[in-house]
Design a protein around this nucleic acid. Structure first.
Lengths: 244, 244
DNA sequence: GTCTATATTTAGATAGAC
DNA sequence: GTCTATCTAAATATAGAC
């Protein structure tokens, strides 16, 4: 295996586990049994290295996603029926969710990286988002629109953002779902995740679409005062939340 | 204002913007016009400082959440009607979403910190999650269960995780929703966010609950092979996704 | 409580040999 | 392409004066 690849592998694994700032170029080099200067020879800066790590995986994922999205569109065209939201969501979610626990291909690292990038406002993350995930997002939103004709673009975009957030939380290896469920959930059981997440989001999009069709989604800032804070109730014993 | 508070403020603002590893003790000290040693005198280590930053805000938020959750329970008890899922979700989401854009109180920083912590597998983040957000999560799940009697604990916990992910994506100040919507969305319009997010998640939970009641949610790993990969279609022109 | 001064380690980056 | 050696800046942390 060539050094460039070894360096990418090392960087990917470490960035995934400890984040962009949590990893030094030296650690990346050590992980690849190379010298720091070689890392900088190949990738020049840390940010460029991070971008290269993301690019390598994301191309594959996005091809998979587009292939599935196409299949959904083709199927609905062939059968003459309209596009099924559930299929669109599955096409969007499955590639990432399935890969997120695949340790043999390094897909698990990709999942962690995407989790970091998604909600991070910092430049290195926004650059990756802009270059690699925004294009596929626009395409997905376009297909979602076909299945959700009553949603305006603003509302649909918000829903897309929410959906991505759900997916990211589903694949982040924090172990939290196991803790909160008292071991009832297996965070590595991707099939169960998909079996719940797809209908979850399906119901979510359709509910908002229904409300929009009924004209019950206030546009803009119309409802600023519509949801007032309830007065502090003293009706039952105060529940304690541990402060430490 | 005392130094300890100034240091907490400085740390909060910087951790929020650049993350745990992206901020040094020196930068925290400089931001508070103090010396590094003073920071270490008050908080000993960086991880302890991070924990202190989180604790300060989270107590307030959790009280607000519990107050609202209680109000929902009391209301439903008083009216004799069953608990409305929409109210539970609003009680859970509103405190964080509303605060997430409040620059006068520093709530915007809290929102960013929660975003970081939620999906981060690293020790400093898990420690915060365990100490401060898991207790309120358990309480919220318990109340959700009242409104969703057909969900088993595992499925409900997964749905809760998904919901938190949506909320976090909704409040993360990445500007992505603005970009993807071509400026149709205003990321700071928290009332619109809530007006979409609440029914979005409401529809999501109810859909999964309906499926569970109908026995259509395969438990465990039953459906491993149920969703095969579709064959690569060549039916239409390949869409291009920018590779850079 | 708050500071200066300092110790030790590590960061990202470069120059130049091979 | 890959290395050693080195630079400069920055990191966390401590000791000790006030």
């Amino acid at each position: 295996m060539d050094m460039r690849t070894k360096i990418l592998d090392s960087a990917e694994a470490q960035f995934a586990q400890r984040g962009y700032h949590g990893v030094s170029m030296r650690q990346v080099a050590d992980g690849a049994s190379a010298s720091i200067s070689l890392v900088q020879y190949h990738f020049k800066t840390k940010e460029a290295l991070f971008g290269a790590v993301m690019e390598r995986r994301i191309t594959t994922i996005n091809h998979d996603r587009l292939r599935r999205l196409d299949a959904v569109e083709v199927d609905s065209a062939r059968s003459g029926s309209s596009l099924r939201l559930e299929d669109v969501l599955h096409a969007f979610l499955a590639p990432t969710v399935l890969l997120s626990r695949d340790r043999t291909s390094g897909g698990n690292y990709y999942a962690q990286l995407i989790s970091q990038v998604t909600n991070d406002p910092q430049p290195h993350a926004r650059a990756v988002s802009k270059a690699y995930t925004d294009p596929i997002a626009r395409q997905t939103i376009r297909v979602l629109q076909l299945a959700l004709p009553d949603l305006d673009r603003a509302t649909l975009t918000w829903c897309y953002i929410f959906a991505v957030g759900s997916m990211v939380s589903a694949i982040s290896p924090t172990g939290r779902v196991r803790v909160l469920s008292n071991d009832d959930c297996d965070p590595d059981d991707v099939n169960t995740i998909l079996a719940i997440l797809v209908p979850f989001l399906c119901g979510a999009f359709e509910r908002v679409n229904d409300l929009a069709r009924a004209g019950k989604l206030p546009k803009g800032k119309a409802l600023a005062a519509a949801m007032p804070l309830p007065p502090a109730p003293r009706a039952k014993a105060r529940r304690k939340v541990p402060a430490t």
